[in-house]
């Protein structure tokens, strides 16, 4: 009789494991985009349950193709996977500022080091190509690209005008 009780307990424990295991597959995701729609099904045609803003923590209960199934205010919802990450959003990394000139000098110094080193040991194919016109470096152009900005007001107007 005692053995039967042990086996029944064991059986109940195993059944509990079966129920509990899928729950242990829960994973936390964080919204990375400015906002993310939570839909009722993994489809853009599904109804919108709500919207989660950047940094919102969502418990994932599975994956369906390009969608992550999440628990959202007690309901099952779906968010496009490209809007989520398993880590909280990181702070914006601005372009290198303090070390910028140092960086550029370093790069130029590196380039000249290359020239001398290459000259010393004879030019390898990669070095010849690097020193050819094909792969010249344009840091002034890069700086123009990095400094170019559109204002928040312009962007908001553009996005709202295009219903983006």
């Amino acid at each position: 009789m005692k053995t039967i009780r042990i086996f029944i307990s064991l059986a109940l424990f195993l059944v509990w494991c079966l129920i509990a295991l899928p729950a242990s597959a829960q994973e936390t995701y964080y919204v990375q985009s400015v906002k993310a729609k939570v839909l009722s099904a993994p489809s853009f045609k599904a109804s919108v349950l709500g919207e989660a803003s950047r940094g919102t923590r969502l418990s994932s209960i599975g994956r369906d193709g390009s969608w992550v199934k999440v628990s959202f205010y007690g309901k099952d919802g779906y968010v496009a996977a490209i809007l989520l990450s398993v880590s909280p959003p990181m702070a914006k990394h601005t372009m290198i500022k303090a070390g910028d000139s140092e960086f550029q000098q370093g790069v130029r110094r590196r380039a000249s080091t290359y020239t001398s080193a290459a000259a010393a040991r004879g030019l390898a194919a990669d070095d010849r190509r690097r020193l050819s016109g094909e792969d010249k470096l344009d840091y002034d152009g890069l700086e123009r690209v990095e400094k170019y900005t559109v204002s928040d007001a312009e962007l908001t107007k553009f996005m709202e005008g295009g219903k983006i």
Binding site: Q32, S33, V34, R54, I82, L83, L84, S85, P89, M90, A91, K92, H93, T94, M95, V150, E154, L155, F158, M159, G162, I164
Partner: peptide, 16 residues
């Protein structure tokens, strides 16, 4: 403008 409109929906907010 088009690029930054899309970037608002990027999963890497740490990047400019």
């Amino acid at each position: 403008l088009v690029g930054h409109s899309l970037a608002a929906y990027s999963n890497r907010p740490e990047l400019k």
